[in-house]
């Protein structure tokens, strides 16, 4: 159990049930959000001011990497690639 887990578990005893419910809702919405990103053109902001566009492919559960397709790098297009989550600061995509 990570320190972050512990911190997020915080709260008084009687709040535990309500906190679990809220946490479950937040996690579910996050997972559905990642699912909604699949196949969409996505803009990634990486460390050191690097910005790249790709098609969102998939994310792993442990938040290690994002799999992307058609990654446009300064040196050309990679058909498929992995971006390390530690390199990524943020990413964005459009829903219609």
């Amino acid at each position: 159990t990570s320190p972050r887990f512990q911190a997020l578990l915080g709260g008084r005893e009687e709040e535990v049930g309500a906190a679990q419910e809220a946490r479950a809702a937040l996690r579910q919405r996050y997972l559905r959000g990642l699912a909604a990103a699949r196949g969409r053109p996505t803009h990634f902001s990486l460390r050191a001011g690097v910005r790249v566009d790709a098609v969102f492919g998939a994310a792993d559960v442990e938040a290690v990497a994002f799999q992307v397709d058609a990654l446009r790098t300064p040196l050309g297009v990679e058909a498929a690639a992995l971006l390390r989550c530690t390199d990524v600061l943020a990413f964005s995509f459009l829903l219609d």
Binding site: R4, R29, V88, L94, L95
Partner: peptide, 28 residues
């Protein structure tokens, strides 16, 4: 804020654009 992932603490934001589209940003 659409959600804050309790595992990674990533924040998912929505902004509404003029063309009725929604822009989703995930800040890790």
């Amino acid at each position: 804020v659409l959600t804050v992932d309790p595992v990674s603490a990533s924040i998912v934001l929505a902004t509404f654009l003029e063309n009725e589209k929604v822009s989703i940003s995930v800040v890790l």
